[in-house]
Amino acid sequence: MEVFGVDMTESTSVIVRGITGRYGSLHTKLMLQYGTRIAAGVTPGKGGQSVEGVPVYDTIKEAVSKTGSTTSILFVPAPSLYQAVEEDIMAGVRFLVAITEHVPIRDTLKVLSLATKHGAHVVGPNTPGVILPSRKVKLGIMPGTSFRPGSLALFSRSGTLMYEVANQLSVSGYGQAIALGIGGDPVNCTTMIECFDWASERDDVDGVVMVGEIGGDVEEMLAKHITQSGFGKKVFAYIAGRAAPKEKKMGHAGAIIYGNFGTAESKISALKAAGVHVAMTPAEIPRLVEKSIKKS
């Protein structure tokens, strides 16, 4: 399955940046358990070690030349994310999943500009990652047990809410062809619109579930795009934060209402106007899906 320029198959392999850290090593283990192939890890100064049987290199350049893998997942601390991305891209990595949270906005803008210049694709930062259940590929920190192979595409700004929704869909008999978190930051290197464009081209995707939240205008822009592009698949959405106060950051750096900008009401009405089925609670999503898509 081709995802943003990478053919994701059972044999797709990935390099883990920050593999020796607590978080990096835990998720290396969990990704391996799921079935993801991990070719190498990188932590400067830890070359020659191994984590869960995965060889560790000092530099990404070495890891890429030894393994040929051009996909990476980053668990590095926020202050060094930009540098790690730059090294990855210069070493030939073309698909990057940036799990790292708390990245400064200006660093994310630099990451985006660099990736665009070199034809690389970045998911995140502050993302749970991407999972393709039918391919046994999990590039992320999501619990694999919540996801089942199927024909829905699930895109989310939030991590846990994506797991919760995936779990409810799976239990109701609706698996996912893909689930991807665009990230909880104000700037996402992969946009919701790019995700929808991807889904519109896929014959194996019957419908799209979008989990949004307060802050910014991602959902409003998406609604416009759905209408203008004549998006042909069923779309279901849930927006978190109807009860949130204004001017307060609700956990995610991007989940904040300024004045009347970024409210749940504005997003819900824009999506409804674009013909999207909007659920008022996460539990309502599978019920809405059931009404319009047959179980496969």
Binding site: M162, R242, A244, M280
Partner: peptide, 21 residues
């Protein structure tokens, strides 16, 4: 709760049920 989105959606549930977070 665990996760910003999950807590945010829980606030909505509380408010919808007539409670105040």
């Amino acid at each position: 709760g665990n996760g910003a989105g999950l807590v945010l959606s829980t606030l909505d549930l509380v408010a919808d049920t007539g409670g105040k977070p």
